[in-house]
């Protein structure tokens, strides 16, 4: 599973490059929105952040199921690593959403279904990380964590449908919606480049974070071994 370090570095450089191009597209090349004006450019941060966060929590969910099945800490390392990055990305989604909301809606926050479920998503996975920090034994942390991660994942399909099911201040989906995307093609292209950049960065961070988890596992194992011997 260990990858050569040049691969990690190349991935990091590629992520940086694509994000830089994405930033240029989003801040310079893409047109302003007919209704919202310039401030709509915040979308190029806000939407890729939450989509990548969904991806991160999906990886956590799958890895958690695999852990419960096989009981191998290698799966748990993937789960916790992906969740941590997902929390950072959800935090960015909430922050950029507040700023975009203040500029267009006129309020930083309101308790509609979409915003509430996103706040719940953030809380669930912050709770997940805290729960794991409190559990003393790695296998126990992994087991409780896996259950919470799988339960917490249910928030994502609900949050995606929230703007369809309930009345919200947040607008419905622009891309995954009946009748196809309701977005200018240049804007859509810009969004896709930014999303690709963030997914690359996520992959880079994930590999790095997994390496951290495995290093820690090795240290714990060594210490246990020593304890038994002496």
């Amino acid at each position: 599973m260990d990858h050569p370090s040049w691969l990690g570095r190349a991935l990091g450089a590629l992520a940086g490059l694509v994000l830089f191009v994405g930033m240029y597209l989003g801040l310079v090349l893409a047109p302003p929105d007919a209704v919202q004006g310039q401030v709509q450019r915040i979308m190029y941060l806000h939407v890729p952040s939450i989509v990548t966060a969904y991806l991160a929590f999906t990886v956590t969910c799958v890895a958690s199921v695999l852990y419960l099945w096989k009981r191998e800490l290698a799966y748990d390392a993937v789960a916790v690593s992906s969740a941590e990055i997902g929390v950072v990305l959800t935090g960015i989604t909430l922050a950029t959403g507040c700023i975009w909301g203040k500029a267009t809606w006129g309020v930083w926050w309101t308790w509609d279904a979409r915003l509430t479920l996103t706040a719940i998503l953030f809380t669930i996975y912050v709770g997940y990380l805290m729960l794991r920090a409190f559990a003393e034994e790695p296998q126990a942390a992994a087991r409780y964590g896996a259950v919470l991660a799988i339960l917490g994942f249910l928030d994502i399909p609900m949050n995606h449908m929230a703007v369809q099911w309930w009345r919200t201040l947040h607008q419905p989906s622009s891309i995954l919606r009946p009748g196809g995307p309701s977005m200018d093609p240049v804007m859509l292209g810009t969004l896709v480049v930014n999303l690709a950049g963030l997914v690359l960065l996520y992959t880079y961070l994930l590999l790095k974070r997994i390496r951290l988890e495995r290093t820690r596992h090795r240290a714990v194992a060594l210490r246990l071994q020593r304890g038994r011997r002496g």
Partner: peptide, 10 residues
């Protein structure tokens, strides 16, 4: 609170 649609146009 101003509500805007999911349409984005230049």
């Amino acid at each position: 609170m101003a509500k805007h649609s999911e349409e984005y146009k230049a």
